[in-house]
Nucleic acid binder design. Sequence first.
RNA 1: UCCGGCGUAGCUCAAUGGUAGAGCGGGUGGCUGUUAACCACUAGGUUGUAGGUUCGAGCCCUACCGCCGGAGCCA
Length: 631
Amino acid sequence: MSPARDQRQKRRCHPVSRGLPGFLGRRRIASHPCVRAIHARRPPCRLASGRCSPWYSTARQRESARWPVRRPNQVVPVWSVSRFFVPEWAGIRFRADHSGPVAGGEEQNDCIGVAPTLPRPGRGRYNRMRMTESPHVIIADLSDHVDSTVTLEGWLQGKRSGGKVIFLHLRDGTGECQCVVEAGAPTVFEAAGTLTQESSLRISGAIRADDRAPGGFEMSVTALEVVHIAEEYPIARKAHGVDFLMSHRHLWLRSRRPGQILRIRHTMIKACRDFFDDRGFTLIDTPILTPGAGEDTQTLFPVDYFGEEAFLAQTGQLYLESACMALRKVYCFGPTFRAEKSKTRRHLTEFWMLEPEIAFAELDDVVDLAEDMMCHIVARVLERHRADLENLGRELAPLEKVTAPFPRITYSDAVDQLRSPETLIFLEEELVRDRARLAQWMAELKTLEQQLEEARKPWQQEKIRAQMSDLTEVIGDLERDVENRPQHIQLAQSFEWGKDLGGSDETIISRQYERPVFVTDYPREAKAFYMKVSPHDSRVVRNVDLLAPEGYGEIIGGSQREDDADMLEERIKAFGLDPADYGWYIDLRRYGSVPHGGFGLGIERTLSWICGLKHVRETIPFPRLMGRMYP
RNA sequence: UCCGGCGUAGCUCAAUGGUAGAGCGGGUGGCUGUUAACCACUAGGUUGUAGGUUCGAGCCCUACCGCCGGAGCCA
């Protein structure tokens, strides 16, 4: 490309930033309905009725608009606006006779080339947002742009080439799109050939529906701008070990699976917050740095606080109780820190917890709240992420059963159940079923072995080996499980009232129900000092745990709190703590004490269950585990 | 803290105590419809570290380091 032509293009692309009259009219640009509609392209807008282009939806939402902005490639009647008031990156071109703008790029190919270096960082928004003449769209909205020419921005996920054709697999954070470059356009073809995995680019061309393309749409590329050529990318398009991937978590996030999980995480958290916001709760941010309260400091992370010892918060609950006496219904949502030396698939040292707390409430109210909330978030995730869940290999049927009412049993019921002959029969039958399943999987493994022998191509063998190693792992898990089962059954049958429920006991109980199950009224010794001693049975406290189905264990822990000052003080002493450390907390029971309670929901464990994951570390962008702080 | 498993090429994994290999990824060349494309060629190694046994150790023994899983504890 000649320097002179390059200059001409710059001029065409940046009319505003170069100080032309449009720049002076910036405010007018911003308020112009036409431009507001254009701005609306980020973030993408979707109407509840389905996918729609931001261009289109904005116009529809403003029915009385005097400035209807329709789809690209349509002539838009705009009269009293000067050509300089609309930035050209918006994709709106003006007719030479100033009769009005023409949306969309009719002359697509005259402004695009291969940028030899990174784009110069610009000062204004018009400089930063470039600048090709076709409208910039996101892949998620492609179905609205079939047969029109658009520009996509993204990263190269993969590349395949025939001699005279290159397939670029583009990812833009909203979806994936195959882009076809043909040798007919030599500059673009050559540039496409240099692209490495994860190189960033802007790419323009016509969108076509094509059954051969993954996702159903593909782009016939007419222009390509290389933003950055990536160095050799460590995460190849093949199976990797989890440890390797975790060490490259900062890059792994770009892959499909982490992306899906993190989007579900977002939906779930938003659903939680919407749930409480819609019910009149106030968000209270509780402190993360907390004084050493004489509590068991073994599971707390110490911090040097100007020479004094402080700790990272394990819960916001005590502070939340204070706020709940002020605002009645409150919740907090934030990170909590536990220095437990647990290296299991259910543990993180830093995880996120959602804790509501309500005044004038007894245990039943807390349980009702938890039940409503769980139904709400599971329904929301199912509504928005069916495809994602299926891609993750999650069976949907168990999630669809998550509807109120959940079974509610007391700890004593649970103990009886664990020891009952019915449970023994149930467990033994289950053991038989699992053994059968094991045999079935072994047979599958045999089949795969045969396929491996028959497979000629090395990569097919590789694929089959990967499947086999997956299956071997699953079989190993089940084998261990089946092996331990008799011991678990033994443990359950000889369970003594008074102990806390162990992991295997929880699993046994939750397996007997299709829905999450509430277990209430645990022995007081097994639970925290702040839980209210039951008025009906002084051996137990008014607490509740929610056990997720399918063996995922406890995802909610909550209680009605002790509201009597003397009783609370007594309990603090009984736990070997110093009431002086809890002065302000006991105060809450001195000034208008009311029955109140709440619970804590572990975001990662819940998400792990909803997504059907084996390990919680996949549910958080950058997991903190015992022995892992990087990246 | 305790118990078990694993450390081999950038990645995933092979290799009876006897010449360290394959696939993917990288590089070069070929191919106009690929779906983790394919075909050919090519570069790539102090087998986690330190000792020991042996004519000979990736393989056996000891210690250490790292990772994974489980128990306890927890959401």
